[in-house]
Amino acid sequence: MEDRLKEILSPFKTQRSDLIPVLQAVQHEYGYLPEQQMKGIAKFLGVPESQVYGVATFYAQFHFSPRGKNIIRMCRGTACHVKGVSKAADKIQEKLEIRVGETTPDLKFTYEEVACIGACGLAPVMMINDRTYGKLTPDKVKDIIDSYEETSEA
């Protein structure tokens, strides 16, 4: 097992109930769940690899291929829906030339859609990484993405 994974796993106990937190920790570190690390997790917890995959694939949070540096989560909640989030969503996909679930080739952005961010008072909303942006319009979305383009180049 590589040292990096060992270190991530060190605070956890070898018990089944830690599987999801372990997956979360590994994904937090690598940005996704690499195959090699999945094997390591199975070994560490003493859970068959098939079951580790079974759990990881059930939850929308886990990913198996590298993702962008910035994760965009567009809210598709009810309030956002009736307030026209689709225009903002179209704008992002058009601008970044990716569709839902995809990552830009330069690995700067991943675009996802989620059920509800829970900031309905500001609908339409999206999150980029841990930051929430509200009252979106197609123009505002463009400016926000531009600001990330700039900072990641700097």
């Binding site: 018990q15 089944r16 109930s17 830690d18 599987l19 999801i20 937190p21 997956l23 979360q24 759990v55 059930f58 939850y59 929308a60 949070q61 886990f62 989620v114 059920a115």
Partner: peptide
């Protein structure tokens, strides 16, 4: 922390999810 599954708000599913399944 949940991992992005709406159905886990259902009581039996929530419990199973805490168990790591």
């Amino acid at each position: 922390e949940g991992a992005g599954a709406f159905v886990c708000g259902e009581s039996t599913a929530l419990v199973i999810s805490i168990e790591g399944k």
